[in-house]
């Protein structure tokens, strides 16, 4: 099963990359962009036996730095029931 992990900077944490992208969009003439936040997408292919708790643990132990980042887990197919 494919799982998407979206990692993004917490609100209030300065996103200098997002700011640079925002500035570049403006210099290219794109108006009306209010804010840009850049994050990352980590795509996992996992066995069906991998639980949401397992995925949470992966995020908290490695995939995200909880000091500065939030994460969101998105299963790409319906999860099978784990007994």
């Amino acid at each position: 099963m494919k799982v998407h992990i979206h990692v993004s900077l917490k609100p209030g944490v300065l996103d200098s990359q997002g700011r640079a992208i925002h500035h570049k969009l403006e210099t290219l003439g794109f108006d009306g962009v209010n804010d840009v936040r850049a994050g990352k997408l980590i795509e996992l292919d996992v066995d069906d036996s991998v639980t949401d708790d397992d995925l949470d643990a992966m995020c908290q132990k490695l995939l995200a730095n909880m000091v500065i980042e939030n994460y969101r887990i998105e299963r790409q197919e319906p999860a099978k029931e784990n007994a």
Binding site: V13, L14, S16, N65, V67, I68
Partner: peptide, 11 residues
């Protein structure tokens, strides 16, 4: 140690 080291503000 507490905290994190992020990309330099100037990029």
């Amino acid at each position: 140690l507490p905290g994190a080291l992020m990309r330099n503000a100037s990029q």
